[in-house]
Structure formats: structure tokens, C-alpha cells
């Protein structure tokens, strides 16, 4: 994928059920020879627009690696990785940057907000470089933080910080929302609030949402649940019905 073929913002074209990721034989190996670590081995996967996918697995099972590869943060050792019509596996750094800039929203376990910028500014940082963003205020409204626009991260609770991170991720109207242990650093009550925000985005915007977690309870709210172990998908199930977030408890 070259810069000229950079994907357009997905949301405008989103049709529920349209294929977004097509993954075949995806492998990621760190190191070489005897010291080689196979973080991901021969993974096949398809994801569709509007889907809510939860990836479960213990530490070291390869779920973060999978998310990094899908999110364009890292490149596979071999295998096919297609985002819609584009080959992500062979993309260079510049193309991956464009991909992340236009199509992917990230939510990290530790929020990764810029401490020197307010909530509004943290979101605006991204809307400034995205081609068709919503306003920072609108994004923060979507996560229920309209009242905390001008607070600095240090003045916000953990849950609020994570919701700012979600607002930051979705403000660009991404095709894909990647969440890496979004509730890992939060208590149950706050975690629920954050998950509600993610779910709300998934429903309202039709964003393909991938949540990786080792918290099996969260799987109940997904359309589809993948379980990883030793770098392979060992189990895949579809929920007949997505559980309401409010009903979850852990």
C-alpha cells in the first residue's frame, strides 16, 4: 500500500456486515533462532463493519500482538493481512501512519493522555490531523464528559481519563476502534461506565470494535468472542444476544 492508495475514512462508507479485516496465516515472531518467540502463529480471522469482537486470553497469549498488527502498530513476520482492499502486511511506515491516522482509533489500558493538555485539547490534538473528524466537544459528549472539557488529566478520575481516551479515539470517526484492556486499570463501577461508552460508539457509529481483555465477563457484551492461547485462536464463539453492559459484574 502506498501513500496514494491510502484508505479513505471508513465511516462514510460503512455498511454493516461489510468485510473490514481479512487475515490469513498471520504470524509474528520476535527474535531469531533459539531465542525466537512466536507471539502469533498462523492466525486466520475475518472481521466485519459494525461488529463488536472481544479477544480473550492470558498474558502472553498473543492478543496484544494481534491488536498491534491489526492496528498498524507493527508488521507481521508473514501471512496475509488485508484491511478492506489494502494489504497492511506489506505497507511501509508512512502508509501505516496514514492508515492509523485515518482509520483506526486506539484506547489503551493506561489511557496515554498528554498530561499537559486538557481533555478537550487531548481530543483536538487528533481532530487537527484527521480528515473528517467530529468536534472534540461532540466526541466528549458521546462519552458523557461534556462537563469536564477543560480539565487536565491529573484533575480527572481514572474512568474519566479513559473516557477522554475513547473520545480521542472516536473523534476521527474511525472505521476500527481498538481497545487494549480498556478497563484493566479501573474498578468495576468505572469499568462499566467505560464499557458503556465503547458500546455506545459501536452502536451509534457502526464502528468495528475490537476489545482485548483477560476479563472473560466482558465477552458477554460481544457479538463474537475469540480466545487466544500460545499465539493461536483456540476457540471462537458467537453470542446469540449481546448482554447489556449494565448487567455485567466481575
Amino acid at each position: 500500500m502506498t501513500r496514494a492508495e491510502t484508505p479513505k475514512p471508513f465511516a462514510a462508507l460503512a455498511r454493516p456486515g461489510e468485510p473490514v479485516f481479512q487475515v490469513r496465516g498471520l504470524t509474528k515472531t520476535y527474535g531469531e533462532g533459539e531465542a525466537a518467540v512466536h507471539a502469533l502463529e498462523e492466525v486466520d480471522l475475518d472481521c466485519h463493519a459494525g461488529e463488536f469482537v472481544v479477544v480473550l486470553g492470558a498474558s502472553g497469549s498473543g492478543k496484544s500482538t494481534l491488536l498491534n498488527l491489526l492496528g498498524g502498530l507493527d508488521s507481521p513476520t508473514h501471512g496475509t493481512l488485508r484491511y478492506r482492499d489494502w494489504d497492511l502486511a506489506g505497507a511501509d511506515e508512512a502508509a501505516l501512519t496514514q492508515y492509523r491516522r485515518n482509520s483506526v482509533g486506539f484506547v489503551f489500558q493506561f489511557y496515554n493522555l498528554i498530561p499537559s493538555l486538557t481533555a478537550r485539547e487531548n481530543v483536538a490534538l487528533i481532530t487537527e490531523i484527521a480528515p473528517d473528524p467530529m468536534s472534540p466537544e461532540e466526541a466528549l459528549h458521546l462519552v458523557g464528559l461534556s462537563a469536564r472539557l477543560d480539565h487536565f488529566p491529573a484533575q480527572l478520575s481514572g474512568g474519566e481519563q479513559q473516557r477522554v481516551a475513547i473520545a480521542r479515539a472516536i473523534a476521527k470517526r474511525p472505521a476500527v476502534l481498538m481497545c487494549d484492556e480498556p478497563t484493566g486499570a479501573l474498578d468495576v463501577h468505572t469499568g462499566i461506565v467505560v464499557l458503556e461508552a465503547i458500546e455506545h460508539i459501536n452502536r451509534e457509529l457502526g464502528t468495528l470494535t475490537l476489545v482485548i481483555t483477560h476479563n472473560a465477563v466482558i465477552a458477554e457484551m460481544a457479538d463474537r468472542v475469540l480466545t487466544l492461547s500460545d499465539g493461536r485462536i483456540i476457540h471462537e464463539r458467537r453470542n446469540a444476544r449481546r448482554a447489556a453492559v449494565g448487567s455485567l459484574a466481575w
Binding site: G71, L73, E93, A94, T97, Q98, Y99, R100, R101, N102, V104, F106, F108, F110, N112, I114, L125, I126, I129, A130, R168
Partner: peptide
Amino acid sequence: REQIAMLKACGFSN
């Protein structure tokens, strides 16, 4: 370090 990573993840170029 993490801020840089976040900026990169969000599509800021090197």
C-alpha cells in the same frame, strides 16, 4: 515515551 507511542498510534508521522 508513551506519549510518543500514542501520537504515533494515532497517526502522527515520525
